[in-house]
Design a protein around this nucleic acid. Structure first.
Lengths: 202, 202
DNA sequence: AGCCTATCTGGCACTTAGTGTCAATCGGTC
DNA sequence: GACCGATTGACACTAAGTGCCAGATAGGCT
């Protein structure tokens, strides 16, 4: 159907297949568990070959965590857009609070979270993603600290970013444990307050 | 040689083999790299079968990180031995500072650190170990915060422990980057100071 | 010594993740 | 219709990790 060739067709096709495979795979994961689902299962269910699966996703974990890289980019943009008057902590936390959530409904999110925190290989990958976010956000925090964005000697920015992201993680885990009974945002502020002693504005 | 049967023989034998295999494997890792060394290589070099290797180490990463679990236990003991007058942060940091290092010389440690921070699978496992430490240390921190040690609703202790361990990680990375030119302890205090604004006593 | 049991060991087969290669195919263009 | 570039599936391969089984060996018991 070459009706709207606004982009290369196979680019659109590729994205469509990617999304479709991810959708089917997530369905299988939530149904029978992440580790119990093999890549062969996914390939069969999605109607593609095993080999083709690996052309769309580098690893099985990437199906669940693949979007996190893009999400980190959004947070970085949000962070750089924060007013210059905000100090490093405030800007970082507000960037996280205001970053657009690219997500499902809460019930599905909770299921995914439970899977994420309960599956070792997924947990490990998710921590690695946090490391990527860290590298992404640190330069801007260095700037707000009055240091050159590429100054590797000053580890203050690294420490601050790492701690805030750790707070996100702790909050996420608490949110999952409590089955979403408290808002993720409140939990994040609570965690940060425990570390800092004060919270940020709206 | 059943000269000193102070313990079961095969217990001592097992520990000896474990240590020997670890020694040989670490040699191979440092010589040709972690990922470039297969388990078959290690088994051949150690004179055991592939199958037996997995009876001593669950994964290849465990050779490098296996001792960390025991190390976490030492830190917990150190933490519980800190005077009651010390607040959560101070006790935690001092416990980390005074915990006995079960280590090699600095040159070897630096090589291992570089391998650790430079190999994704090792990095991931090391972060998982930090999670174990977190679970190990959180109850005592909760106690110092005046909460029940098993109170899962209060995430303050989780946040504090997570942040301090993240500071350890950031300090370790900076130490590795700077090739050990600054002491790890100073870097840790610097990282914590960036988060808190003040340091602990000696 | 002889027996019994628990443990360790090596070998084999198996599953799963992930990669390299290659010939066939399909969309889009001239 | 012919050409070009990207995609695809099939096959073979490496490497991690697990299950199973039969043989060796240490230690205890009589």
């Amino acid at each position: 159907m070459p009706t709207t060739p606004d982009q290369k067709l196979w680019t659109r096709t590729r994205q469509a297949v990617h999304a479709e495979v991810a959708r089917i795979a997530m369905g299988l994961f939530l149904e029978r568990g992440f580790e119990a689902t093999t890549i062969d299962d996914i390939a069969v269910a999605a109607g593609i070959s095993r080999r083709s699966f690996f052309r769309y996703f580098g690893t099985k974990e990437d199906i669940v965590l693949g979007d996190l890289a893009a999400h980190g980019e959004l947070i970085r943009e949000e962070l750089e857009a924060r007013p210059a008057a905000e100090d490093a902590w405030t800007a970082l936390i507000n960037a996280l609070r205001h970053a657009p959530r690219l997500g499902q409904d809460d019930v599905t999110m909770l299921k995914i979270s439970k899977m994420l925190y309960g599956t070792p290989s997924l947990r490990a990958r998710s921590l690695e993603k946090h490391l990527q976010w860290q590298a992404l956000l640190t330069p801007e925090i260095r700037r707000r600290l009055g240091v050159a964005p590429d100054d590797e000697h000053d580890l203050r920015a690294d420490a601050i970013v790492a701690c805030v992201l750790m707070c996100v993680d702790v909050a996420g885990e608490a949110w999952t444990r409590s089955a979403g009974s408290q808002s993720l945002e409140d939990l994040l502020l609570e965690a940060v307050a425990a570390v800092r002693g004060s919270a940020a504005d709206a």
